[in-house]
Amino acid sequence: MLLINCPLCGPRAQAEFNFERPVETIIGVDVPTAELVERLYTRTNARGPSAELWRHARGCRAWLRIERHTVTHVIASVAVWEPQS
């Protein structure tokens, strides 16, 4: 189980968090259809570093950007999500 260091709450167990989606699949409101399909439905799905949107759903409920390795589970960074980031 991951130990996720929430910037607002401190280190908490993964059980408090929900994975939402890879950052690359977040789409703007007015993107063209082709880009929408590409970004909504396809994934790099790297065996390696991955940037993801998580939510501290059973904690402070903040949306978080987490950079994480999908094989070793090492977490490189956790930051409160800012849409422009």
Partner: peptide
């Protein structure tokens, strides 16, 4: 399980999350 990885070797991206 590793479709995304192996397809990635051919430069493809799939609608798959492992």
């Amino acid at each position: 399980g590793n479709s995304g990885h192996v397809a990635g070797l051919a430069g493809l991206r799939l609608p798959v999350e492992s």
